[in-house]
Design a protein around this nucleic acid. Structure first.
Lengths: 258, 258
DNA sequence: TAGTGGTCTAGACCACGTG
DNA sequence: ACGTGGTCTAGACCACTAC
């Protein structure tokens, strides 16, 4: 906190060699992120009012608002007029509208039913290690799910997560899931997925995938390779999805949120 | 302009039945959009300084800044500290980083070479009519291009645009193009593409596409169906792309711009 | 040196949600 | 009625660009 003096009085000098690191609102943003990371404010609950935060950080309300604006834009906080500002959490709705991009031909979205297939402890291969920023051979967990939409199987997820960030993960956590996977990450392991980066290509179904999806071997499939990132661009999950796009499609908006 | 009185003096009342339509900054945003639409400020040139706009609109600088913020977020204006605020235009770089989402396996982006294939006047079929918000049978232009990346053909674009928005469009415009297609739309027809909405699926190459891409019939292809939108969500182009993703991929970021 | 956008303040009033 | 976020003001100083 070392910037932005007011005007009328010639106040105490900004200090000799102050460095002028970054704007005040960014410093406040970082402090708020730190508070979130250490669990001072919990997912789903309200953070202090803007007036109180301004007092705490010794700034004007406008500056605190600017910091909150950034965190809201980053899907980390949610404002609700008249009620307060809340820590975002991965509810079903949020997941559906932010990270699940498969829609019906008509454009209609619906909740996927997740069917657990397998869980295993393994070691990171070259690709997973690169995507997750861990060393080749580091312990990881592998999970396989099948997703259905309106009763029809349409998607297979192969998920890889680093053991170092999910210490104590068990098969039971994935089997008896009440909420979404990203909600599990957040609630149990404090890992909050902020954004994802995906690469898509068209491939032909192999015998294994075809059997799981109930389609012919050699049918076209959409392959999605996703890296999920947490605060500060830290990768926390690598996921390969295979989607039968015969009656569903992948949906992307470019240049502005929907 | 009819909102937000200050405090100390009890100024002239906000008026009897004022309606309280929308915030001042949104009204200013709309007025600025109107100025852009009627060509008062041209692509690539600077708009008046914030101080002058504040005077013109009878608001404080902060409120004008808020309006500009919105237009910047919508890729319509571009701020440059110390220089001014400019009307965005579709340069090669902008196009590449905003609307061209095909990358090499390594993640590297490069400029596609566009090869003109055909141009025709036609009438909107049911699907094009729906996507472009015109009536079935309305006149449209159809353009087909082939794109190469590093010398190898990887993509076929089938473009449909409504004649009503591109009056006087000719084949020559597409043949002898110096810049990008979206730049042509903007410079010659005043149609500025703000964002796109895309649907993706995996299909098998038919004989026609396979021949154009130099691949085997029945090879997997990524089909992209894109609607390009201008100000106020007006659709201005419908485009079906077929991409050979053997050595290239579609790239998507979810939850925050990259 | 002049002009532009970027940050920051201190405080007012408005709109909304809840008791 | 009260507390919260949402809008708005008027003006200062900072950082950057260009002449």
């Amino acid at each position: 906190m070392s910037r932005g003096r007011t005007s009328p009085p010639p106040p105490e000098a900004p200090g000799p060699g102050i460095a002028y690191a970054s704007p005040l609102f960014r410093q406040i943003e970082r402090q708020m992120l730190a508070a979130l990371s250490r669990g001072e404010w919990k997912p789903g609950s309200a953070i202090p009012a803007e007036r109180h935060l301004a007092e705490r950080f010794g700034s004007s309300i406008g500056t605190v608002r600017r910091a909150i604006d950034e965190l809201v834009a980053g899907n980390i906080l949610i404002r609700q007029q008249g009620r307060g500002t809340f820590v975002a959490s991965h509810t079903r709705e949020r997941l559906l509208y932010h990270f699940f991009h498969i829609v019906g031909e008509s454009g209609a979205k619906s909740y996927p039913e997740v069917e657990f297939l397998s869980f295993a402890k393994a070691r990171a291969d070259r690709i997973a290690a690169e995507k997750l920023h861990v060393a080749v051979g580091d312990p990881v967990f592998r999970v396989r799910n099948r997703l259905q939409l309106l009763g029809a199987p349409i998607m297979i997820d192969d998920i890889t997560i680093p053991a170092v960030r999910f210490a104590g993960m068990t098969e039971a956590r994935f089997r008896g899931r009440a909420s979404t996977i990203y909600n599990l990450y957040q609630q149990v392991f404090g890992v909050y997925v902020v954004r994802t980066s995906e690469r898509l290509r068209a491939i032909l179904a192999d015998a294994d995938s075809a059997a799981l999806l109930g389609i012919a071997s050699g049918a076209p499939l959409l392959q999605i390779r996703r890296v999920a990132l947490s605060y500060n661009e830290v990768p926390v999950e690598y996921r390969i999805s295979l989607v039968d796009t015969a009656h569903n499609e992948y949906w992307a908006e470019i240049g502005r949120g929907a």
